[in-house]
Write a protein that binds this DNA or RNA. Structure first.
Lengths: 363, 363
DNA sequence: GACGACCATGTGATCGATAACAACCAGGAG
DNA sequence: CTCCTGGTTGTTATCGATCACATGGTCGTC
């Protein structure tokens, strides 16, 4: 029977992969030959199929080890149509939030046995997002996760090549058929605003992020709703970019108004600018004015003073988005998308109280 | 001759890719059939080979367009052994520096026609780095770029699977055979220290980064050399982690010593902590103490006061590392590695003077 | 003792491209 | 007119895995 015969007979082909020639890596056939089995049996061992005699399995494993065999994932992908690679479309990935998201996603993907390929887009138009998806699709990714802070990305996602699973993470998760994972921005804004009102402030001013970013809009919404609920007046907002410069400029104006005693900023960078503006105009924080941020960047605790802020758990966000994507790929109906509720994951943020908030100054 | 015959004869196979069946994408054969040529001719058109009649080429292109054909890169990779994918091994990619590097690398790679796959490692031991390389190698990347701030990564890189090109970016570029791209950290430190000395300070204190990070060590070296050259005393250093907490703790100590009038910090985050410590102890910046950072993070210009710092051009760094890697892959001898000098690219940083530096206080 | 079920394994086709080689055609040299 | 050369195209093997199916044993059963 075949098991007993030595590994070197078999009609004696003229040793094509012999000693000469370019150093081609060891392949399944080499392992099979050494173990005295067929390549198919090697494949079975590799994929953990049942119906392989333990003794045979050991012999194959031993052969793989001694030849230092690694399977060629390209060939596997071609045959199975599954690349075990996920595509990530990123935007502004040098910022702390997106970078953290990327980090969390990569980690979760690896644990699930996937490699991630990253494409960053510089503008949030439909065109470059479609191009990115196309590129990823050509590279045969099994699914796509888009870091999608603006609606343009999400709508572009809906036009993905059919059959390619996708998930949007971040943004506001507008319902347009693409499963999404996001932070509850409105809740975060409520927590911040509530905190300030509870400290006794008559109202809370807000330095908002860009108006066309759903995340910024949601934070405005949560802030306004909380003020309304409390019967507090709602000051005007003037949306700006997510950086310290915006906070500084807006802060200089707010600082002139002695009625301003509490400011909720759309993110920590804006808060940094606001803090500097207040400092420069001689308004002390938190004695004269309280400030709250959003994100909990790594060093927010070392601003002057340490910043009270709303923490987003980006790692969790990454984990949840991978889970959602994999569920969808598995055909799990709970994640199928399209109107059902399980395809909208919302993660709760958390208020971190530090030294930049206190009660209003006595009048 | 074959060109004239309609696309539908050819022994009439029973329309295998017809209307029924699973929606398999269009492949080269479909295009070939529609254009009335062989699949090989389609391949020639796709790869821009000469010796294709212009008329034929147009017919093929037209067929590709009308079928919305996209070539299967997996099959191409299997046949050519080139995946047009690069592997990136990242460390601490949520920090501004590495995140920017990643961004720059991805951009440059895309322009060169490559996709990037990212693996982040959590510890800088040899083991996880080797595992990361292994994973990337299995996915058939054409080359590897490692964001390599510590020596452990670089030495691990040297053990990469033979034949796999690699480049280290960041770190200090220790000569161990791996081509490397890096910032001239010593020069950056010199610029900062020189700037402070030129302002009239008797000496410059330094809050260093972790001792086992070559980048931190190089900055210490540049700082010390500059002091030596000027005949200034060299205060002791106490290496710490790259965050604001370190700067704060060290800053509290330095603030107690009235002789301290100038502090050079190993990065902007440390500088943030130092600024806070000085502020809390009532030492004014820059009137009493001058502070310089390193990195030029996005909001350093909005610290209190705006931070004078050393700017690293991460985008350029990414561009250069891709260029080096591609040159090496091309077999270009100028980039071959192994003792020759062209495989050590050093990028010069730049001093950005803002409001945190001034002359020493009058005694 | 013949039959079928089931385990263990091998054989050949297939995934979708590229590479190597052969075939056909036209035109110029001898 | 024949031969040779080189542009244009087709045919077949190949990359390295998986998948579908066939095959040859072992075992229990009637």
């Amino acid at each position: 029977m075949t098991v007993e015969r030595p590994a070197t007979d078999e009609g004696a082909p003229p040793d094509p992969g012999g000693t000469a020639g370019p150093p081609r890596g060891t392949i399944m056939r080499d392992v099979a030959k050494l173990a005295g089995v067929s390549h198919q049996t090697v494949s079975r061992v590799l994929n953990g199929h049942p119906h392989v005699r333990p003794e045979t399995r050991l012999r194959v494993l031993e052969a793989m080890r001694s030849l230092n065999y690694r399977r060629n994932l390209t060939a596997r992908t071609l045959a199975t149509r599954r690349s075990h690679t996920l595509g990530i479309i990123g935007f502004e990935t040098t910022l702390f939030g997106p970078a953290s998201l990327l980090y969390g996603i990569e980690h979760a993907a690896r644990e699930a046995g996937y490699l991630v390929s990253v494409v960053t887009v510089r503008e949030l138009d439909r065109r470059p997002v479609l191009a990115a998806m196309d590129r990823l699709a050509q590279h045969a990714v099994d699914g796509i996760i888009a870091i999608a802070p603006k609606a343009a990305i999400t709508t572009a996602l809906a036009q993905a090549p059919p059959g390619l699973c996708r998930v949007a993470v971040g943004g506001a998760g507008e319902a347009d058929g693409t499963p999404a994972v996001r932070i509850d921005n409105a809740l975060g804004a409520r927590l911040a605003t509530r905190h300030l009102l509870d400290l006794g402030h008559a109202t809370v001013h807000h330095v908002a992020g860009p108006a066309d970013w759903p995340e910024a809009a949601e934070r405005v919404r949560g802030w306004r709703a909380t003020l309304d609920d409390a019967g507090a007046p709602v000051p005007p907002v003037d949306p700006r970019w997510w950086n310290a410069k915006s906070g500084y400029e807006r802060g200089r104006l707010l600082a002139c108004d002695p009625a301003v005693t509490a400011i909720f900023c759309a993110n920590d960078r804006i808060a940094l600018g606001v803090l500097r503006a207040l400092h420069e105009t001689g308004r002390s924080v938190p004695a004269d004015v309280s400030v709250v941020g959003f994100d909990d960047m790594p060093d927010s605790g070392y601003f002057v003073p340490p910043l009270t802020t709303v923490r987003q758990d980006f790692t969790e966000l990454g984990r949840r988005s991978i889970a959602l994507l994999l569920g969808q790929m598995r055909g799990d109906p709970a994640h199928a998308g399209g109107g059902d509720r399980a395809d909208r994951v919302v993660v709760a943020p958390e208020l971190v109280v530090r030294g930049s908030t206190a009660g209003p100054p006595p009048r």
